[in-house]
């Protein structure tokens, strides 16, 4: 049986831990709201971009002369996995889930005899791979200084990926991130970013519709070549925004659980403390009474 003093100390320590987790939970909740708003605000752009890409893709034949970002290199030997996570821990299963999804895919590719390279955005998803696949890692993009994700940050990541692609470092690129569904549910997701997976053309337009004789300035191919890198940046941007919201949602849930656990622990410890105190008092009384009787 621990002493009264030791019990008291433990209660105090659990209480201060609870204060920390409670504060973290509230901070995460506030940040989550902001991250959700940012993701919401970014939607119009990416929707319109997707629509434009789809209508362009229906007009341009994918051939050897097509931009390589769309047509690919013609090979699928070297794969690049871009794994986006967070810079900070204590976010529940957030990074673990992304890592697990990426590792599964990585093992499949390796089993098929493909060459795989790993690029990380944020350091927390890198650590598990440092141990097992250190030789596959080609870089980490640091996000520590970023408070709220801006488009420029996403563009920097996209430019890095494009530069590596142009240098012929890989044939196919996949992006791993966590899709935000709600504060309780985040879904690790894989997205093929190079060659661009273009949305299937909607052929459902009524036949009577006037065939939109769209004028292109300069021409379809140049516009497409101009838009592809932008589209890539937009996809990365969306992924980073989803990730930011997922991270905060995951952290909020994790910290909520931790706060509740700490509360349970405090209750249990307090009961033990009171019992021990009572036992000590009883013991003292018995000692005094039996001492008095002996006189």
């Amino acid at each position: 049986m621990p002493s009264l003093k030791a019990l008291k100390n433990r209660i105090v320590s659990v209480k201060s831990t609870q204060k920390i987790t409670k504060a973290m939970k509230m901070v995460a909740a506030a940040k989550l709201r902001r991250a959700q708003e940012a993701a919401e605000a970014a939607r119009p752009y990416s929707e319109r971009m997707a629509a434009v890409m789809a209508s362009l893709a229906s007009r341009v034949q994918v051939g050897p002369e097509s931009p390589r970002l769309m047509a690919g290199t013609g090979n699928s030997q070297v794969h690049l996995l871009v794994i986006a996570g967070s810079e900070r821990g204590l976010a529940g299963g957030f990074n673990t889930n992304i890592t697990r999804a990426a590792r599964k895919f990585l093992d499949e590719l390796l089993a098929q005899g493909k060459t795989v390279k790993l690029l990380f955005v944020g350091k927390k998803t890198r650590a598990p791979f440092l141990r097992t696949h250190r030789n596959l890692i080609i870089g980490t993009i640091d996000q520590t200084h970023i408070k709220t994700v801006r488009f420029a940050d996403a563009k920097a990541v996209a430019d890095d990926i494009t530069a590596r692609f142009e240098a012929g470092e890989f044939d196919v690129a996949h992006l791993f991130f966590s899709k935000f569904k709600s504060a309780l549910a985040q879904e690790p997701t894989r997205l093929q970013i190079i060659p661009a997976a273009l949305p299937a053309v909607a052929e459902s337009k009524p036949v009577g519709d006037v065939p939109a004789a769209i004028e292109y300035e300069p021409d379809e191919e140049s516009i497409l070549a101009d838009l592809l890198p932008r589209n890539l940046a937009v996809q990365v941007f969306r992924a980073l925004l989803e990730n930011a919201a997922s991270e905060q949602g995951s952290r909020m849930t994790a910290m909520d659980n931790a706060t509740r656990n700490a509360g349970d622990m405090i209750n249990r410890l307090t009961i033990t403390y009171n019992r021990t105190r009572q036992a000590a008092i009883t013991k003292e009384l018995i000692e005094i009474i039996s001492g008095a009787e002996a006189l």
């Binding site: 605000a41 970014a42 119009p44 752009y45 990416s46 488009f151 996403a154 937009v234 941007f237």
Partner: peptide
């Protein structure tokens, strides 16, 4: 007329 940036409308 709509002017859209990646961050917001």
């Amino acid at each position: 007329f709509e002017l859209v940036s990646p961050e917001r409308m």
